[in-house]
Design a binder for these strands. Structure first.
Lengths: 377, 377
DNA sequence: TGCGGCTCCGAAACCGGTTTCGGCAAGAAA
DNA sequence: TTTCTTGCCGAAACCGGTTTCGGAGCCGCA
């Protein structure tokens, strides 16, 4: 009815698209016989518009189906109502299985506020930084979510210098001026360790994550705290080399099994390393959940299909995405980054990889030794 | 040097961000002492600018580091230089494992042309349509990539009516006016069938995909063509009920094994169904690659970790994303949709699930029957 | 009655680009 | 020499919004 009138009076094709023209702010203004400046101020909640006209205007806008064009607003305000996300997608990307959930969370939260998400993906760290700079230069987004934060992160420097709002997924060494969301991996490692100790394990090892991540340090501390709580001494030999992949996990497991007093249980900083432990154990005829117990962290889907299922502390990626988006929007709206920090717990998913030890460390060493001799004969 | 001058002369803070001001088109014009209209036309390749000044202008723009603001351009041109992508992310999303690769492909191609990707995700078909409409209304993207196209797809209607360019990932029943990219699943099914026949299988079944997808029909035809090429008769009993999930795959397998003449080999339209076959075979004491052979399609990562590895026809998702982005950009630039259609082959990944039959169909039936009786006793 | 202050809104400038229109100058045709 | 093109560019309008500025009313108060 009303919408029709407007569409009839200024039917005209714009660009390639034919179709009926959008309802603009001028249409609303003309329809009410007032100036478009007033309409703009009313819709943006300026205080110098009377409540009466504010109501008239918002009702008319609603009826006519007026929605401002974010890029038309942006030219004056500098804000495009979009969140930026530059992913690093490489071959060993541990975040890959969580991507869908994470994106779901981010975009849902953005949609709720009528924002959009601008995304890019690059294979290397350097290209990520370049693309990030480009997006900042061209004002494609009002702020950025930084996944996979490193201990010292170049992206942070870039964005701080450019004075562009951002939120990190994961803490860094120096978090001043930074907003972040993180999961308490250290608590998970601690709980994993005490849990294994309660099952009767006394030789509990830890396979940490990559050194470039701050969380690696935190998780090691969590592991040590768990040992302490269980009354076990920390043995540096049980702190394996770092492993972020299946292959590296298997290698780390090999080193642990070569020890004079090998561990009967292993806490892994990431699921992929744990799946490497499965492989290594398999190759040595050791059964997970019997001779070797494992608890890991992340919650990758493969863990559920492994045999036995991998007991792990799962991260809720969708929630992480959602919270990060909301924090970022608040940040863009001017909130103090120091007030925008959140820690969430990981959830224990009990499957079959953590049981009481079938063999003591000594017996395990004996058995590995026997195998070795058999092979050599 | 030159850049510095400009930055010094008009240093002024805009909005929240402090930082030095961007270089605008006026800066370039003033620096050269010409009008900004001329600069714009030169940079956009209008024919009424002499080659000499074109060169001067593009060089100056380069030196000053001028990049036009896409949203400032958009207000006049209606083009934001962005590709839209609305994902449907639900629990049984088969596309999930490919998402990272796919996004990588799309964003790479977009970046190459200095475009961006605007993304959204919704859990249901209806919400996808709503979000799509919103993005169209607000001109957040110049065109859309439609993944997971259905036989009859509401999104297509929406976009055709709104006269907004789009490209489909997958063909539909009626592809008029549509650009698309697809993988030759029918060829893969045909090759899988002849391959199994060549290994000595004579009872080869097919577990098709969901009826809502057009490819399901195509793949069934491919399967039938394979039978024909191998000189085998088509037996309707060997066309199992559809299966898109592990659970449904196991159920379909159950029905096939209940047949008087059960198949010794199965061609699955999707990997997930094949993994369900693994589960079903396992439960019946049948070994994949021995009593039962399987070849599937998709290339999900779990297939590599299954035991034995799943032989499958893998789709190159990154390439798909890249091609789709390029096709869409061409479409937005005005190319005829009929000229924008591409078919890519799937790649056979040989693992261990397809071997010569260890048992004939009759022997298999006998064995299943024995088991059944044992159970019942 | 005059004056100051406050509320509320219109007019117009502005943001950073694009596009239309018209005119000047040089070369070609008459 | 005059006229008609043609090539090339400046001036200004325009896109759809936001924001500044000022002024018209209305009120209260001296």
């Amino acid at each position: 009815m009303i919408r029709e009138e407007i569409l009839m009076t200024n039917k005209r094709s714009v660009g390639v698209r034919a179709g009926p023209r959008r309802v603009t702010i001028s249409d609303v203004a003309n329809h009410l016989g007032i100036s478009k400046g007033t309409v703009s101020r009313a819709l943006n909640g300026y205080p110098d518009i009377s409540e009466g006209t504010k109501l008239r205007i918002s009702r008319a806008a609603e009826r006519l189906g007026y929605h401002p064009l974010s890029h038309a607003q942006a030219i004056r305000t500098g804000r495009v109502r979009s969140l930026g996300l530059v992913l690093q997608i490489d071959s060993e990307d541990s975040a890959r299985p969580f991507l869908a959930d994470f994106l779901g969370g981010v975009t849902q939260a953005a949609s709720d506020e009528n924002w959009t998400v601008t995304i890019a993906a690059e294979p290397t760290e350097e290209r990520v930084r370049k693309t990030l700079s480009r997006l900042v230069d061209e004002q494609k987004a009002d702020g950025f979510i930084l996944p996979r934060t490193l201990k010292q992160d170049g992206r942070v420097t870039t964005l701080l210098n450019a004075n562009v709002p951002f939120v990190m997924f994961g803490r860094t060494e120096d978090s001043r001026e930074c907003a972040w969301y993180d999961v308490k991996g250290e608590d998970a490692m601690r709980a994993a360790t005490t849990r294994l100790a309660a099952l009767g394990h006394t030789r509990i090892a830890h396979i940490p994550g990559g050194d470039q991540y701050y969380y690696t340090q935190l998780r090691i501390e969590g592991y040590e705290a768990g040992l302490k709580a269980a009354g076990l001494a920390f043995d540096p030999a049980l702190l394996a080399p770092e492993a972020m992949t299946r292959r590296a996990g298997a290698a780390a497991f090999g080193e642990l099994m070569a020890l004079p007093e090998p561990p009967t249980a292993i806490v892994c900083a990431v699921d992929r390393a744990a799946l490497g432990v499965y492989r290594g154990a398999n190759a040595r005829g050791l059964r997970i959940g019997r001779e070797i117990s494992v608890i890991a962290y992340d919650g990758v889907p493969e863990g559920a299909y492994a045999d036995p299922g991998l007991t792990t502390f799962a991260v809720n990626s969708q929630q992480a995405g959602e919270r990060l988006a909301r924090l970022l929007i608040e940040r863009i709206r001017g909130a103090d980054p120091e007030d925008l920090r959140e820690l969430a717990p990981a959830t224990l998913v009990e499957r079959g990889s953590d049981k009481a030890p079938a063999l003591s460390s000594t017996e395990l060493a004996q058995r590995l030794n026997d195998q070795h001799e058999i092979k050599n004969v």
